[in-house]
Design a protein around this nucleic acid. Structure first.
Lengths: 195, 195
DNA sequence: TTCATTAATTAAACTAGTTTAAGAATTTTG
DNA sequence: CAAAATTCTTAAACTAGTTTAATTAATGAA
């Protein structure tokens, strides 16, 4: 059932013959992690790339002042990784932590390379995936520079209602690039408006 | 000579047999554009993806208030495109304009697809390129959220000395996500410090 | 169930960056 | 080369968001 989710995910990007798709997803292994577990800590090397089938993660970094900045949340059907650390097997600058008991399908760097070598379509698949990802990060950057904090919050809530429910406001504030206190003010203003 | 630059660029990412590399870069055509020319305007579809061999471009968007936000600059050895508009042949939200007389090597969407189909290594090449690009955009986002405007300017000047020379401070300010006036103040403060 | 910890809220003082406006410097164009 | 347009600078008033600090609410661990 977990593998079905990944197969659907792949098939949406590149159409693959069922047999080949089965072989490909077989490269991934199931891994359960308890809430609070760190998949990766700053300065470690990310050994496994993961696809979330259940639960939720935060991918974040700690700045010089010691405050946490959330880069993104990864819930079901998202990938969880430090793309740089995994690809080049270099020290990461990110933390990855489970926000709930979660289930992943994971693959090692060596096995991922095998996948790329043996299945040109996997190369294509991830080419398209990363291509979309670049566009998405560019859009996020533009949103940060053109929208107010309140508009960004509105956008977040609309786009990710489940994540809004799940994670603390403190983490959402961090994702939005504002303080917890200011988000609290925004939320009160919105609540007042609605009455 | 222009093609040599592209060949070197490709070879740094994926090692390719010389004959194959020649065939691949042959898919690209030289195009000269005069300073001020728009390669793309908001709501148009980007028909050609370009590799800059000479000159410089700005990739930007206009926000609701009518102010321009520079997403990035593309000088020699950079790609110039709206990744989303080109890949899906959909209306763009970006403007692309030559800041100088420039030379590009360009390819159409159909020819690019042919490249992908016929050369699995090209698929791999762009997979790696986009992968690095995602990491770079993530880093930029984190910089925007953790560094002050002055630190970001310092970082920009250090990383892109030629672009700093070439483009107006107004555009640099826009890239950094601050106003022209505030950048002017930052620059004065820096000049005062250095005396 | 209770204690301890962390998150959320509120409010006041603050600051990084914006806005507006006007003059000086530079670049572009005819 | 001169006029027009744009960019750059300066400064004062302003504001979106931060900081600090204190209180309350919620969550987690024993």
């Amino acid at each position: 059932m977990y593998y079905e989710l990944l197969k659907t995910h792949f098939n949406k990007i590149v159409r693959l013959p069922p047999r080949e798709l089965d072989t490909i997803v077989d490269y991934y292994q199931e891994e359960k992690v308890a809430k609070g577990t760190f998949l990766l800590r700053k300065s470690e090397i990310l050994r496994l790339e993961g696809y979330v089938v259940e639960g939720c993660f935060k991918i974040s970094t700690i700045d010089k002042k010691g405050s946490e900045k959330v880069l993104y949340f990864a819930a079901r059907d998202w990938w969880v990784m430090d793309i740089d650390s995994f690809a080049n097997q270099t020290a990461s600058s990110l933390d990855i932590q489970a926000l709930e008991d979660s289930t992943l399908l994971v693959i090692s760097k060596a096995r991922k390379e095998q996948l790329y070598q043996e299945f040109p379509k996997v190369e294509r698949l991830f080419r398209i995936m990363y291509q979309r990802s670049v566009a998405a990060w560019q859009k996020r950057l533009i949103r940060n520079q053109t929208m107010t904090a309140e508009e960004r919050y509105q956008h977040f809530v609309t786009l990710y209602p489940e994540i809004t429910e799940l994670v603390t406001n403190k983490l959402i504030a961090s994702y939005l690039g504002i303080t917890q206190e200011f988000l609290s003010m925004i939320r009160r203003r919105r609540a007042e408006k609605r009455t």
